[in-house]
Simulated assay, not measured.
Amino acid sequence: MTALIHAASTSDQGSWLSTLADWVVSLMELIGPPGAAIAVGLDNLFPPIPSEVVLPMAGLAASRGSFTLFEAIAWTTFGSVFGAYILYGLGRWLGAERLARIADKLPLVKGEDVEQSVAWFERHGAAAVFFGRMVPLFRSLISIPAGVAKMHWWKFGLLTTAGSLIWNSIFVLAGFFLGENWHIVEQYAEIFQTIVIVAVVLAVAWFVIVRVRAILADRGTDQASEGSGSA
C-alpha cells in the first residue's frame, strides 16, 4: 500500500485533490474496500468530493493486490447507492408540499415551479435517475427530486445501482489499468465537469432573466390597469 500512497501524493503535489487521494488511500489501507465505499458515499452527500478521484484510487488499489477488482467495483457501487438513498430519504421527508411552501418564500421562485418539476419527474424520472448517476453534480442531486416525487424505493434503487455500476466501473477500471497514471482520467473528467457546470450556470442565468422579465411585465400591466381605473 506504500506504493499506492506514493502514486497518490506524487500525481498532483500540494493540491487538495492530492490530499483527498492520500486520505482515500489511508482509508482503504485501514479498513480495506469498505473504505472506498465510505469515500464514494461521501461523494454523493458532498458533491465537491469528486468520484473521479476516489474511484480510480480504488482501481489502483485493486491492481496492487490490496483487494480484488470485483470488490473494488462492488463496494464503490454500494457506497454510491447508500449515499443516494440518504438523499432520497431527505427528498421524501421534505415532500412536494413543504418544498412548495419554501419556494413561495424565496425570491424569483414559485410553489408552482415545484409542482411542475414533480410532474416532469413523474414522466421522465426513470431516465433522469439512471443517466443522472453519470453526470457530475446531478449524480448527487438527482436523488432528492426522486424522493420528493415519491418514486418507488425499489425502482429508485435499481436505476441508481445500474447507473452507478456503469459509472463506477469505468473509473475503477481506468485506475486498475492505468496504474500510477490514474490521474490522466481525472483531466478528461474535469473537462466534462466544467462543461456541466457552465451549462448549469447558463441555465440558472436564463431562468433568472426570464423570471425577472415576467415580474417586470406583470408590474407594468398592474400599473397600466391602475392608471386606466383612476382615469
Rank of each mutant, 00 (worst) to 15 (best):
T19E: 14
L20I: 05
L20E: 07
D22Q: 14
S26N: 15
L27C: 03
M28K: 14
L30V: 12
I31W: 15
P34N: 08
P34Y: 01
I38S: 14
I38T: 09
I38E: 12
A39S: 09
V40L: 15
G41W: 10
G41H: 12
D43Q: 08
D43T: 13
D43N: 10
N44R: 14
L45D: 06
P47C: 12
P47R: 11
P48H: 04
S51K: 05
E52D: 15
E52M: 15
E52Y: 13
V53L: 14
V54G: 06
L55H: 12
L55A: 15
A58I: 07
A58Y: 01
G59M: 08
G59V: 07
G59E: 03
L60M: 03
A61L: 02
A62I: 03
R64S: 08
G65W: 03
G65M: 04
G65D: 01
S66C: 06
S66M: 14
F67L: 09
T68D: 06
L69D: 02
L69R: 06
A72I: 00
A74H: 09
T76W: 01
T76V: 07
T77R: 06
G79Q: 02
G79C: 04
S80Q: 00
F82Y: 06
F82V: 14
F82L: 13
F82I: 12
G83R: 00
I86K: 05
Y88W: 03
G89T: 01
G89K: 00
L90S: 07
W93V: 11
L94W: 07
G95C: 04
G95I: 00
G95L: 06
E97M: 09
A100L: 06
A100H: 01
R101I: 02
D104W: 03
K110T: 07
K110F: 07
G111E: 00
G111Q: 05
E112V: 01
E112M: 00
E112L: 03
V118H: 05
V118W: 07
A119S: 10
W120A: 10
E122G: 15
E122Q: 14
R123S: 14
G125L: 10
G125A: 13
G125S: 05
A126H: 11
F130R: 04
F131C: 04
G132F: 11
R133W: 12
V135C: 04
L137F: 11
R139V: 05
R139I: 02
S140M: 09
L141H: 10
I142S: 14
S143W: 03
S143E: 02
S143P: 08
K150V: 02
K150T: 04
M151K: 13
W153L: 03
